[in-house]
Amino acid sequence: MYKRTAESREIQPADKKGSQDQDIDPLIPAEADLEDEYEIPSLDRSLLKDETISENSSPLKEKEDRSTYQHILKSKNKVNYSITLQKWKGHVTEIKESSFTAELQDLTNPGTKEIAKFDFDDISPDDKKLIGIGAVFYWSVGYRNENGQTIKESIIRFQRLVDWNESDFNKAADRASYLEKNLNIQ
């Protein structure tokens, strides 16, 4: 593989038809079309319809010259990422004064369930309000790279999900009614 030293993709001019387009926010560069960010010349795009491939939004994209060591070093240091060694999904089963007990499901090496106790101090302040019986959280242990520094991490993050809507509730109720009428229970 070989790394390009200069971007040569086409950038399409924005559509300037009609007076309403004069109100384009100055934050958006006039020559950048934000919807179609790169072309793959050899492929018949009509085959792909709506692409859902991942696109880069890292700071490296705007840089033209990627060949100098200093630039690469600076860019790498901006890249923050983490690798998980072990991950669990837990739910709270018991709450005490300053701790809670949870049942854990190992997501990395699935097997039997585990029971663990966590102190409230292990939980981020914003997540503390989410602690409750049945509340679900993720616990992952691994390493993080932040600005070039490797840091061990153990993160507990409570699940935040939208509440059910009417449709969810109705689906459950409909299924229950249907089963009650149609199961051959003797």
Binding site: K89, H91, G134, V136, Q159, L161, W164, D168, F169, K171, A172, A173, R175, A176, S177, L179, E180, I185
Partner: peptide, 20 residues
């Protein structure tokens, strides 16, 4: 109460969509 029981298991099935 079979109806109530079936409602409970259906609720839990619906919860699987939310992975809970």
């Amino acid at each position: 109460d079979l109806k109530k029981f079936l409602r409970l298991v259906s609720i839990d099935l619906q919860k699987s969509q939310y992975s809970v």
